[in-house]
Computed example of a mutant assay.
Amino acid sequence: MKALTVRQPWAFAIAALGKSVENRTWNTHYRGLLAIHAGSRWDSDEAVRRVGELTGVTIVTTDTAAIVAVVDLVSVHNSATCIRPVEERHEHDDGPFTCSRWAIGSRVDNGMHHWVLGTRRQLAYPIACKGRQGLWDLPAYVEADVLAQISTTAGLRYGSPSDLINPEETP
């Protein structure tokens, strides 16, 4: 299984808060299951503030240096081609009418790639693992633990973003 290291609070936002787009400066042709690895370092205070603005959740502490979720990477598109039907558009500070409130970049600034994340499975028990840059392969023993957790409902904290009735009450 492929994995992607994402700094906190973004990894938590993917795992538990329904973050549907991961912004990257590079493209990938990979599609399929993608393990989300919470990096050992946190992003800026501004990132924590931004997640709070988008979700109403203030993240103080959460897992790091561990696999925290598995998502389906369903597509990737350049921000310059990020056009969606009116009912699916979101207008926000990062640019009008992008594919998601989580998306950054615009039709003018085409340096970003929006990795569109489908079904998400947050692990009930994060699995300690050293991360890497870029897309990387999980070690076999970590992959086995991840697959064991996602194969049962007992291994899930939440099944989908709609399961989060009140995000302010999530752990």
Score class of each variant (00 low, 15 high):
M1L: 11
M1I: 11
A3C: 07
T5G: 07
V6D: 06
V6H: 01
V6L: 00
R7V: 02
Q8P: 02
A11H: 09
F12M: 04
I14E: 06
I14F: 10
A15D: 07
A15G: 12
A16F: 08
A16H: 10
L17R: 08
L17H: 03
K19W: 04
S20E: 10
S20N: 15
N23V: 06
N23C: 09
T25V: 13
N27M: 10
H29M: 09
Y30Q: 07
Y30R: 05
G32Y: 05
G32D: 10
L33G: 13
A35F: 00
H37T: 03
A38M: 07
A38Y: 01
A38L: 12
A38N: 07
G39V: 08
S40H: 10
W42Q: 02
D43W: 00
S44G: 03
D45G: 15
D45R: 14
E46L: 12
V48F: 13
R50Q: 13
V51Q: 04
V51C: 02
G52W: 00
L54H: 01
G56F: 04
G56Q: 05
V57F: 08
I59T: 00
I59F: 01
I59E: 01
I59C: 04
D63H: 15
T64A: 11
A65M: 09
V68D: 07
A69V: 12
V71T: 09
D72H: 14
D72R: 14
L73C: 06
L73P: 03
L73A: 04
S75G: 14
V76Q: 00
H77I: 15
H77M: 12
H77C: 03
N78G: 06
A80E: 05
T81E: 15
C82G: 01
I83W: 04
I83K: 05
E87A: 13
D94S: 12
P96N: 12
P96E: 14
C99N: 03
S100V: 01
S100E: 04
W102N: 06
G105S: 09
S106N: 13
R107S: 09
R107V: 13
R107L: 13
N110P: 13
G111Q: 02
M112R: 10
W115I: 04
W115E: 09
V116L: 09
L117C: 06
R120C: 13
R120A: 11
L123N: 04
Y125A: 08
C129V: 09
C129T: 13
G131M: 04
G131Y: 05
G131S: 05
R132F: 11
R132W: 11
Q133S: 04
L135Q: 00
L135C: 07
L135W: 01
L135N: 10
L135A: 09
L138Y: 00
L138S: 11
P139D: 14
P139H: 03
A140M: 07
A140R: 11
E143D: 11
E143I: 01
E143P: 00
L147E: 10
A148L: 06
Q149E: 09
Q149I: 09
I150T: 08
S151C: 11
T153H: 10
T153M: 10
A154D: 14
G155Y: 06
L156C: 06
G159M: 03
S162T: 14
D163Q: 12
D163H: 15
N166E: 11
E168R: 15
E168V: 15
E168P: 00
P171H: 08
P171C: 10
P171Q: 12
